[in-house]
C-alpha cells in the first residue's frame, strides 16, 4: 500500500526568516489526520534566512535528526557541543531526559535548507547525547546510502530507534531495488527531481508512506535526489 502526499497539498509556514513545509502537525499547524507515520513524528523541510534560527529551547524523549541540504547550520547545546555542519553532514540528537539547544544558520549571506526529522525513541529517559557525522557525497550516486541508523558506522550516525535513513541521487532511468521486512514502514521524500515507485510518480517535494509491501523498485523518471526511511 502506498499513499502519496503531493507537495502542493502540504501545509506551509512563512515566518519571514523561516519558510517551512511540515509533513506532519507541528506548532500552530494541527491536523489530527497528519500527526506522524510509525515512529516518525516530524518531517520539516526548513529554509532559514542567514544569521537566523531557533533560540534556546528544550527537547526530551525524541530522536532528532538534521540533514543539511544547503548552507550551514550551527548547533549548540548544554552538553557542551557547538558544531557547524553543511551538505554531506548530519546532526543527530537523542534528547532523552532533557537537553537545551539552539540551531542557527551559521552563514551571514547564504540561505540554509535542512530536513528536520523527529522520531519517537525506542527507550524513554536515556542520557542525552549528540553526534555530528559526515558521509561521502560521491556514494549517493545510484545507491541507497545509509546516513543514520541504529546499525551505525564511521559515516553513519547512530540513532536510538530501530530504523535507517537513506539518501540517494539516482540518474534518469536508473533503478534501485529495495526489500522491506514484514511489519516495517517506508517513508519517501523527493528532495529534487522525479521518482517512480509502485506505479506512482513522485515529483519534487512529494512524500509517500508505504506499508505492507515486500519488495519495490525505485526508478528515476529524471535525475532525482531523495530520502528513504525504513522504520517501525
Amino acid at each position: 500500500m502506498i499513499n502519496v502526499f503531493p507537495a502542493a497539498e502540504r501545509h506551509s509556514v512563512d515566518l519571514g526568516w523561516l519558510r517551512s513545509r511540515p509533513s506532519f502537525s507541528f506548532g500552530q499547524y494541527y491536523d489530527p489526520n497528519r500527526t506522524g507515520f510509525g515512529v516518525l513524528r516530524v518531517c520539516n523541510d526548513d529554509f532559514v534566512d542567514p544569521g537566523r534560527g531557533f533560540g534556546a529551547h528544550p527537547h526530551s524523549d525524541m530522536e532528532i535528526v538534521s540533514i543539511v541540504l544547503n548552507g550551514k547550520i550551527r548547533h549548540e547545546d548544554n552538553l557542551g557541543n557547538s558544531v557547524v555542519s553543511s551538505f554531506g553532514e548530519v546532526q543527530r540528537m537523542s534528547a532523552g531526559s532533557g537537553v537545551i539547544h539552539t540551531e542557527f544558520n551559521a552563514s551571514e549571506d547564504e540561505e540554509l535548507r535542512l530536513l528536520q526529522l523527529w522520531f519517537m525513541p525506542k527507550e524513554r529517559g536515556v542520557t542525552p547525547s549528540y553526534e555530528a557525522s559526515r558521509y561521502d557525497t560521491d556514494k549517493l550516486n545510484n545507491a541507497l546510502l545509509p546516513v543514520v541508523s541504529d546499525n551505525a558506522s564511521e559515516q553513519v550516525a547512530w540513532i536510538g530507534q530501530n530504523m535507517t535513513i537513506y539518501l540517494s541521487k539516482l540518474e534518469q532511468g536508473k533503478q534501485l531495488p529495495y526489500e522491506t521486512a514484514e511489519g516495517r514502514k517506508l517513508y519517501l521524500y523527493v528532495i529534487e527531481g522525479r521518482l517512480n515507485v509502485l506505479g506512482q510518480a513522485l515529483s519534487e517535494g512529494d512524500t509517500a508512506q508505504i506499508e505492507q509491501v515486500g519488495a519495490l523498485e525505485l526508478e528515476a523518471a529524471e535525475s532525482v535526489f531523495f530520502m528513504l526511511i525504513d522504520l517501525p
Binding site: A56, E76, N78
Partner: peptide, 13 residues
C-alpha cells in the same frame, strides 16, 4: 523528576 535551568542569553545566536 528532573529539571534544567538555563539563561537563554548565554547561548550564542
Amino acid at each position: 523528576s528532573s529539571c534544567i535551568e538555563y539563561y537563554p542569553h548565554e547561548y550564542s545566536t
